[in-house]
């Protein structure tokens, strides 16, 4: 464990909690892409199947359980409890255009052609593009609630910190995982546009609004 991975995980946890609290407190999921949340639930489900088969550490197990529970709770709030506030008209990204390439890539490019390994690879590739429906929805509505931008900031920051974690592990531990690094780079690059808007607008107290 290193400082980048720890702060990365805490940033990820913060993002997940911020979103859950936003929906719960405002009793509304306006501006939130349910499709992205379903994809994240799928990412955690396919990545943490080893939750019961291999014990790495208490921290690892506890965090995995929290991520999975929060992911499904968020999906439930969006499509169940607060369905009336779900903005389906703007959440129209065609997720099959993500799932099909990701499945093909996971089957073709992986560390080992074994079920658990392919599921993990699928989860890594899917996570790198899972935010696209959310970013697409914001570009369609032309704006985002400030709390939603904080959610996105911490979510983007987490994988950015993981990139530093992988540099650290390569340098100090000789570890290198090309699949995780490349997917993590793609994931972080997708946030660049948002990071720019977040830093130049939201941090200056303005509302995040895109030139529609």
């Amino acid at each position: 464990m290193n400082i980048f991975r720890l702060t990365g995980d805490l940033s990820h946890l913060a993002a997940i909690i911020i979103l859950l609290l936003k929906i719960w407190k405002t009793r509304s999921c306006a501006g939130i892409s349910g499709k992205s949340q379903i994809l994240f639930a799928l990412v955690f489900t396919t990545r943490y199947l080893d939750l019961f088969s291999s014990f790495i550490s208490l921290y690892n197990t506890v965090m995995k359980v929290i991520y999975i529970m929060c992911a499904y709770a968020t999906v439930y709030l969006i499509y169940g409890k607060f369905k009336a506030t779900y903005d389906g008209n703007h959440d129209t990204f065609r997720v099959e255009f993500l799932l099909i390439p990701v499945v093909l890539l996971a089957v073709l490019i992986n560390h080992a052609f074994a079920p658990m390994e392919i599921l993990w690879t699928f989860s890594i590739y899917l996570e790198s593009v899972a935010i696209l429906p959310q970013l697409f929805m914001i570009s369609k509505t032309g704006e985002a609630e400030t709390i939603t931008t904080h959610y996105l900031f911490f979510l983007g920051l987490y994988r950015t910190l993981y990139l530093f974690n992988w540099i650290w592990r390569f340098y100090f531990e000789g570890f290198f995982d090309l699949i995780a690094v490349v997917a993590g780079l793609v994931q972080t690059i997708l946030y660049c546009d948002f990071f720019y808007l977040y830093i130049t607008k939201v941090l200056k107290g303005k509302k995040l609004s895109l030139p529609a």
Binding site: H12, K64, I109, R169, F175, D177, L178
Partner: peptide
């Protein structure tokens, strides 16, 4: 593509 080294990561 080498061995997956990030088994302990979330």
């Amino acid at each position: 593509l080498g061995q997956r080294s990030t088994k302990d990561e979330l």
